[in-house]
């Protein structure tokens, strides 16, 4: 693989190579944890940390890993990191970890992780792999946060847990949109984000 600049590794996944909207990976957690911004942020952070460090570890070990069991090795590394993150959340961010429930554990099955490990970390030096992991984690987080922003604002009338829609609105008959709290709306929002992104970056439109 040709050498790519580290800055590109960081910036590409944010837009043109976005893991969620372009590669359409990691959708299930994007639906489940985006009801509010805080859990979405913590989820994005967890995924970024796990992707970055598993990429670093796998890349450092890449020459010693036997090819026949490489997927298992990757899985074990990812699983171990996910368990550590999960345990840390339970100990220090209990209320958020309650909201995230099983979805932190399910980071193990997040396709973004395995995809980056197989496609990048197995063939690149540790530092670029680390950067690539962070980039993809951030790309995922951005989408999660934008969905969570809309869902929390319209679904609960708040941002980051703070009520921002003035009570006057409610007296005038405004109501929070219950559909925003349900997962189907997250699918529709992802669809709309993909729609917007593709009308903006025409090169992403498939022929």
């Amino acid at each position: 693989m040709a050498q790519v600049k580290n800055s590109k590794l960081l910036a590409n996944p944010l837009n043109l190579q976005n893991p969620v909207t372009v590669q359409v990976l990691g959708i299930c957690s994007a639906l489940a944890v985006t009801v509010q911004m805080k859990p979405a942020f913590v989820m994005g952070l967890s995924v970024t940390i796990v992707t970055a460090f598993s990429s670093l570890i796998i890349s450092a070990l890449r020459n010693t890993i036997p090819n026949r069991i490489r997927i298992i090795v990757q899985l074990v590394v990812v699983a171990a990191l996910v368990i550590i993150v999960d345990q840390l959340l339970k100990a220090f961010l209990y209320d958020v970890s309650k909201q995230l429930s099983v979805f932190v554990g399910l980071i193990i099955t997040n396709c973004i992780l395995m995809g980056r490990l197989e496609a990048f970390a197995m063939g690149n030096k540790p530092f670029p792999s680390f950067i690539d992991g962070i980039g993809n984690g951030l790309g995922y987080s951005i989408i999660l946060l934008s969905i969570a922003f809309v869902r929390e604002l319209l679904g609960s009338g708040s941002i980051w847990g703070f009520k921002i829609i003035p009570p006057v609105f409610y007296q005038l008959g405004y109501e929070n949109n219950g559909l925003m709290i349900l997962p189907p709306m997250a699918v529709i929002l992802i669809g709309i984000i993909i729609w917007i992104q593709r009308s903006w970056k025409k090169e992403l439109i498939e022929k």
């Binding site: 020459n63 010693t64 036997p66 026949r68 069991i69």
Partner: peptide, 10 residues
Amino acid sequence: TEKNSYIFIY
């Protein structure tokens, strides 16, 4: 790295 013994120990 493809020897059985290596995989086993690894």
